[in-house]
Design a protein around this nucleic acid. Structure first.
Lengths: 192, 192
DNA sequence: GTCTATATGACGATAGAC
DNA sequence: GTCTATCGTCATATAGAC
């Protein structure tokens, strides 16, 4: 069969799974829910993925890699920690508005509950990249001398919390409306 | 039967459930796991709780109420936003060390996945109390004029993120070791 | 590759004896 | 109140025809 069609079907499965996982959660979604939503049969689905868990893992890894690519691009585009981290937060806010499901899945999924033995989100590629940027910012003197983990949470903890608020429907306005004030406040916490 | 014994059994169920829910998650824990861990039979367990969901709800509500009490006590003890919020973060850090399971359950559980229709954590009693304190702090002029939600996440987003790091085993040292620096950084973000 | 039909097993919850 | 035994349901995954 044409590879093109195969890919379309794979993506249909992943898309439907993403929708259902964020809507009702991994454990409240059955394989048959995904299968019918993606317009194919159970047998076919199991031809594309070994099992339900594999769908979740592929999904998570895709989103994670995509974010990592974006972070690398931001790193190339800007040359200092302020501009870089500012762009990251803006990117996260925008993505949450444009592609809410992805962000919700990335941030809200207790991935270790789905995949028995799984590393913490905090040692994932995107996280490490952000950490690297912050460490460089400390070396250059733009960010105060402080415990690196504390610097990380001070800079990104607020914005990330803001994303949770938005996903939970607490904020009336879209995230970008709060961006300038939120970023400014976060930066005040770490600037030299 | 003596009320005392009834209460002991009820607590045994809740304690075992808390342990298992945090260890492997709600959906990976069966009623029979809880029952055997709490040293009683299935039938007896169902005499104490209507169903599995009720256990999770009671647990969540207990922890939430307990935290709310503590926040109220802190509010009575201090008379300004700086001292109050400082005490809150310290309390959260201490509790995470002393009673990791409770905090993990409170912070990490996707409660809406367990209980179909459930309000967001962000409109829970403890959250609203914290919000009230921050709003008063803005009125008194200790905290800068800014969107209240942004003030909330700037002040507590970092510390809460720190708790996640600790629960996930990323931090080598216990949380109190990071407290002063973490609180100082958070406050810098909102102070007038 | 894709489908339908089904095996297998687990789990939540109840019945009914004591 | 407490137990053991069991029922009904449903979800994952596979078998086997096309």
């Amino acid at each position: 069969m044409r590879d093109e069609k195969k890919q379309r079907r794979q993506e249909a499965i992943l898309l439907e799974a993403l929708k259902l996982f964020t809507e009702r959660g991994y454990f409240n979604t059955s394989v048959s829910d995904i299968q019918s939503g993606a317009n194919l049969s159970v047998g076919t689905l199991y031809n594309y993925f070994k099992n339900k868990e594999a769908i979740a893992v592929t999904l998570f890894s895709n989103i994670e890699n995509c974010l990592y690519e974006n972070l690398c691009e931001i790193e190339r585009k800007y040359d200092n920690v302020y501009d870089r981290c500012r762009a990251i937060v803006l990117h996260l806010f925008d993505t949450t508005e444009r592609n809410s499901d992805s962000m919700q899945y990335l941030f809200y999924t207790k991935h270790r509950e789905v995949v028995p033995v799984e590393k913490s989100v905090f040692v994932s590629l995107p996280f490490l990249k952000m950490r690297e940027m912050v460490l460089n910012g400390q070396k250059s003197g733009d960010i105060r001398k402080m415990e690196p983990h504390v610097a990380m949470v001070t800079l990104f903890g607020g914005p990330v919390r803001m994303i949770y608020l938005r996903i939970d429907g607490v904020l009336e306005k879209p995230l970008p409306a709060y961006f300038e004030e939120c970023w400014d406040s976060a930066w005040r916490g770490v600037r030299a």
